[in-house]
Design a protein around this nucleic acid. Structure first.
Lengths: 219, 219
DNA sequence: CTCTTTAATGGCACTGTCTGCCACAAAGAC
DNA sequence: GTCTTTGTGGCAGACAGTGCCATTAAAGAG
């Protein structure tokens, strides 16, 4: 997009910018370190310097990659949200959502463990809660695009955006529940196809089916 | 609750704590000043010292009443959210929600103007957006209580909480829309019973009717 | 190889946010 | 007045985050 014809023979000079993908990986790596520290010592007890040191970058670079300490959890949380987004996007018109969730929702046990730990932390850490909510909201336009496609309405239609926000809210509430259910028995995280996650997917599927099968607004 | 039998004859000693109501008023007053400054100069350009000075308290006291600069918008935003909560709470089983909204949703033009200004600000100020979302989420338990009562289910029921979160989301999305519609014609704010607000209430009523009249989960 | 160009990182100084601590003022009961 | 409890202000300090400049990394040109 930004590259192209301008890189003809005798192409561009100077060090090439890092790719989006590289940035993504770097931020995710730092995010995992930060969450590890947050889990061990608490958010307020963890300083930016510690995060930077653990991640092997200077503090200055840390603040360039994350605008705030709490924002360090974003890339990790996005792993889970992006996975769900991908599930919705690849949801065949005919398929049952619960089944599709079981086969298409792909997150590693370790990441899921960390994500749910962050969600639990967010109960007592307002800044983390805020990050979680903002991240959720950012996913709504994608949900709206999918729902709009299914219902034959533009993604900008207010009803579609409301529906997307409702889907979003359902995901958030049920993920919260799951985070606390898991807390009492962390072993279930070893196997994401176990009964507790099955139950979670089933509930999610049911709520989403209700919300997505609502009649669209009379045009 | 905390007072009572202990305040008998020879009652408690020392200066009595300020009432909840006094605190509420004090925080709201500071909140209005802060929002005024935010609107005039922008959030990042407004310092805690300025807010304190404008509100006539010391900076130290400001940080005692608000944990962060951005939290200064909370009391003002709560004016609008509390009003809506009250509408839901007082919603008669029989009444049409749109009509009930028109008569029971009570917020002054000035406050509404300020609230919508903050909502618009939240588009470019992540911290303000976060505050707005967190505040919205805090209202959900009340929504759940109302919906639970209507559907004969406990407020803790997952389906009820999902429904409450959906109601919440609808309110947020449509309020956002309204904030931007109003931006192009601020004069409509002089009369909250004008056609633009009527349209807003009607849309809100319709979305909420859809969401609240959904069949509850088969027990 | 060196020279040049562009991007990424680090170091440092600095401002603003927010907290802990203590002193003092205010409001009561006695 | 004294005593007790609560709210407020002042000050010092830690931490978060930014602007600016030097340094280093990665490429192509010669």
């Amino acid at each position: 997009m930004t590259t192209g014809v301008h890189d003809g023979p005798g192409g561009r000079r100077g060090r090439p910018p890092v790719t989006e993908e590289q940035r993504r990986r770097q931020r995710l790596a730092i995010s995992r370190e930060a969450v590890e520290l947050f889990r061990r010592h608490g958010v307020t007890e963890t300083t930016g310097e510690q995060i930077a040191r653990a991640a092997g970058v200077s503090e200055r670079t840390l603040w360039r990659l994350f605008r705030a300490k709490e924002a360090c959890v974003e890339p990790l949380l996005s792993v889970s949200l992006d996975a769900f987004t991908e599930v919705l996007r690849s949801w065949p018109m005919s398929a049952e959502l619960g089944e599709h969730l079981r086969t298409a929702y792909l997150v590693s046990s370790e990441d899921m463990r960390a994500v749910l730990a962050v969600v639990r932390m967010s109960r007592d850490e307002p800044a983390i809660r805020a990050t979680w909510l903002v991240l959720h909201e950012r996913a709504e336009p994608v949900f709206a695009a999918v729902l709009g496609g299914r219902l034959g309405l533009p993604a900008e239609d207010p009803t579609i955006r409301v529906r997307a926000a409702a889907v979003n809210a359902a995901l958030r509430v049920l993920t919260d529940d799951l985070a606390w259910e898991v807390a009492s028995d962390p072993a279930v995280l070893d196997d994401l196809s176990g009964p507790m996650f099955d139950e979670h997917r089933a509930r999610l599927a049911e709520e989403l089916r209700t919300l997505t099968e609502l009649p669209a607004r009379r045009a």
